[in-house]
Design a protein around this nucleic acid. Sequence first.
RNA 1: CGGGGCAUGGUGUAACGGCUAACAUGCUCGCUUUGGGAGCGAGUGAUUCCCGGUUCGAAUCCGGGUGCCCCGACCA
Length: 410
Amino acid sequence: MYQSKLFTKTVKEAPKEEEARNAQLLIRAGFINKEMAGVYSLLPMGLKVLKKIEEIIRYEMNSTLKASEIYMPALHALENYEKTGRDDLDILFRTKLATGRDLVLGQSHEEVVVPLVKNHLFSYRDLPIYVYQIQNKFRNELRAKSGVLRGREFLMKDLYSFHADEEDFKSYYELSKKAYKNIFEKVGIGEETFITFADGGTFSKYSHEFQTVTDAGEDFIHLCESCGVAINDEIIDEQDSCPECGKKKKDLVKKKAIEVGNIFPLKTKFSDAFDLTFTDEKGDEKSVIMGCYGIGVGRLMGAILEVKNDEKGMIWPESVAPFKFHLIPIGKKAEKEADKIYRNLGKEVEVLYDDRQVSVGEKFADSDLIGIPYRLVVSEKTLAENSVEVKKREETVEKLVKIEKLQSYV
RNA sequence: CGGGGCAUGGUGUAACGGCUAACAUGCUCGCUUUGGGAGCGAGUGAUUCCCGGUUCGAAUCCGGGUGCCCCGACCA
């Protein structure tokens, strides 16, 4: 893409109202626009990053977890929440139809997916069922905070599983841990992200969260460094030791972290609320066992950024970067060759081509801010060697690479 | 929702109750310049968040709103 065609601009200083590192960088680089507290527009490069994260999630949902993607509405009937007892949640955005019927904006989709599945589930032969969606959620938070980490409208992946018995649920739940681990590794924060025992609510001992260690986080976890599992601070008082390997509580390390994912055994809480049942092999009617599995997609983008940045700007992992290469010509004489390189590389990978007539310093500063993995500089100097200077964003060393060898980086 | 802070061109900041609200940056035009946010010149851009009050006079003081940020509470 030609940088001159990008309608967004970078700015030197973030608005002073943003203190969160993720919001400062995303706004300075023109990835997002703030509409109000906790509500952001996604601009071209921000959207590209988000779409890449979505695709990584989709792949794991489809291939590892064999789930089917659907898309449910944001407008929900309040009646459904009366059935599950969640109609008094204070984070619900409430609204009405013109006819007066009470509605809420969806903050989660159990109240929609269970009646939906009820229309398609009758026999044990129909089970298990796995459905997921990637969709905006609305939560009327008393306090939005930390940039994109806690918004009032935000993109979320939510998966719901339906099982005939506890064993079948259990094995799927374990598989979901694996899928989640794959996702966080692929987006580049595998080393900082830990599965964490958390409160299971009234009907399960535990749920599990995926917590990314960063000072920007709003949770505290107690990390067991021997087995790489953590315990959420909210349940630490009930524990004597690591539930995974038995290491003593006093040897766990307390860290600040952000919850990027959560998986939750629901037992029959929601299926019972809507009489979601099936007929088993013996002809008996039984309740369906459920699980739900969430990932905050926008929050994940923010969490990646909190982990991957330096004083100059963002450092995107290649898997989610808006572009792979940032091509920068210096001087009139380099432009012709840069055009040619852009045409060749651009056929195979995403290249942001800085074709703007601005000073070198500005190009470099913007390049560091935007944080594309590979910076390619073409100048009279490099052309004398028939080369291009290649620099990885996360490294300080540059090296000259012959133009014909550039293909090996694709 | 409890506590604290802030609000001035697009952005970042300045201005004793008193002159035409200043500076930087941005943007426009011209010249110049191309290996780290370049230089010179000329322009442009503001209902000082809103409503009310005090005063001869309010960006500045007072009252009430609203918005934003931070701490806490909350977070199936």
